[in-house]
Design a protein around this nucleic acid. Structure first.
Lengths: 241, 241
DNA sequence: GTAATAGTGTCTATCAGACACTATGGT
DNA sequence: ACCATAGTGTCTGATAGACACTATTAC
């Protein structure tokens, strides 16, 4: 007992500790996730596509979230997106280098296109999310992790304003609805959607700013808060059968 | 670049890795959480109360959830309660022994009283949860972690059947409602509650089994599944103002 | 019978779905 | 004028809240 306690204090073998990110954005038509190609000269899953992430650096990272923000900055240059922890995955087999645990964060970006490459040498690319997967095999257990992150996002879209964090600075209500529809994978009814959004204080008009297009110009809105989502009392039930 | 990658592979300093549990039960009147008193001869928070948990043992634990189940078994003897990951907390200051990350699980037990001591030498006790805290100071950042676990539980109670996992094998609908009320901290309306529960397939009658009391005997029910909660389309809105 | 608790009938308020309608720009 | 898209009016249906009512036991 005392021996095992002494052993557990500091000499216990320590798992590898990493942080991984599921970074999402939308384009006109679909949900996308940012992946990086792993280096050619690594001992684990060389050349495979993976969620961006890596080891916690105990010298650099004050805490797990700071570590996630650092990795996000390195990959995208973005400073303060919506960031939420999804959970952690740890076992003895997910990494060939040893027992490892990863802390997974979900990030939502407002503009996919502008952010891309950054000076970082690693190959980085947006992949379309189909169902809960991408078209390439992923390193480690990242396919499972991506599936969980997409599920979390889809589940919360039903009763929160998460898709609002996928919008650029100014947007119309129709554009916001379209983003909801892309993430949910089904259509929503216009009037119900607008009533619901306007019943919260999620967005505010940008006075005088309109989006011109083929028809009547549309009022532009902006988010009141870039950090906290709004929760609805009901889910979107969707069109009736 | 190549140097830093080589360094990151296996020689990187590794954080301490632990799993902690917020184990909940209800008695007649209140929500309770199981705490353990830390050993007198440890270098971190000796003699303080803490959430049960400890280091991942890479030789014993196939994965994080197995580790949580092992610790739960050691503290309570319970094999298969409701178990859900709450998230992870990691930083350089939460443990005086070094940069550490803990993976936190929430467990719901059906019968508080029967389970208690077990052969384990460590002092173990149920504490009443008041608001989001207990009456004693907690080791590490466990006060913050407990707060998050209670918040998670309360939030999910609004739109899921989680409190059902706090019930014993057989129970009446009034008892289930009472458990909801204990966790939520407010009263619910009887008819609305029953309509809602019966609209799902959460519970089934135990044929012929009744609870006798001071008034009319009540039908006993049991859960259809001990693993998966049911999700409701709306939250409990509670009595109107 | 009364007290106590289980369980139901039914009205109302709220809000999402449906969908037709009006509003306002471009061409 | 006509098209396209923005945005609204309003009816219906589902369901939670309120609350009075009935049902079944012990005493």
């Amino acid at each position: 007992m005392a021996a095992s306690r002494a052993r557990s204090e500091l000499t216990f073998p320590r798992p590898l500790t990493t942080v991984d990110l599921a970074i999402f954005a939308v384009d006109e038509e679909s949900l996308q996730v940012l992946l990086v190609k792993r280096s050619h000269d690594t001992s684990a899953f060389a050349d495979a596509w993976a969620l961006p992430g890596g080891f916690v650096d105990v010298a650099l990272d004050a805490d797990l979230e700071q570590c996630a923000l650092r990795k996000l900055r390195e990959k995208t240059g973005v400073e303060a997106p919506y960031l939420e922890q999804v959970g952690s995955w740890g076992n003895g087999t997910r990494d060939p280098r040893g027992w490892s645990a990863t802390h997974v964060y979900l990030a939502l970006l407002g503009r996919a296109r502008e952010l891309l490459p950054g000076g970082n040498a690693a190959e980085t690319r947006w992949f379309l999310v189909k169902g809960e997967r991408v078209s390439v095999p992923l390193a480690f257990d990242h396919a499972e992790i991506l599936k969980a992150a997409v599920s979390r996002l889809r589940a919360k879209v039903e009763y929160t304003s998460l898709p609002a964090f996928l919008m650029p600075g100014e947007f119309t209500l129709t554009e916001l609805q379209h983003t909801y529809e892309i993430v949910l994978g089904r259509d929503l009814e216009k009037k119900a959607f607008r009533t619901r959004i306007m019943a919260t204080d999620l967005v505010e008009e940008v006075p005088g700013r309109m989006r011109d297009g083929q028809g009547r110009p549309a009022q532009l809105y902006r988010l009141r808060s870039r950090k906290r989502p709004v929760f609805f009392a009901r889910t979107f039930s969707g069109p009736r059968s």
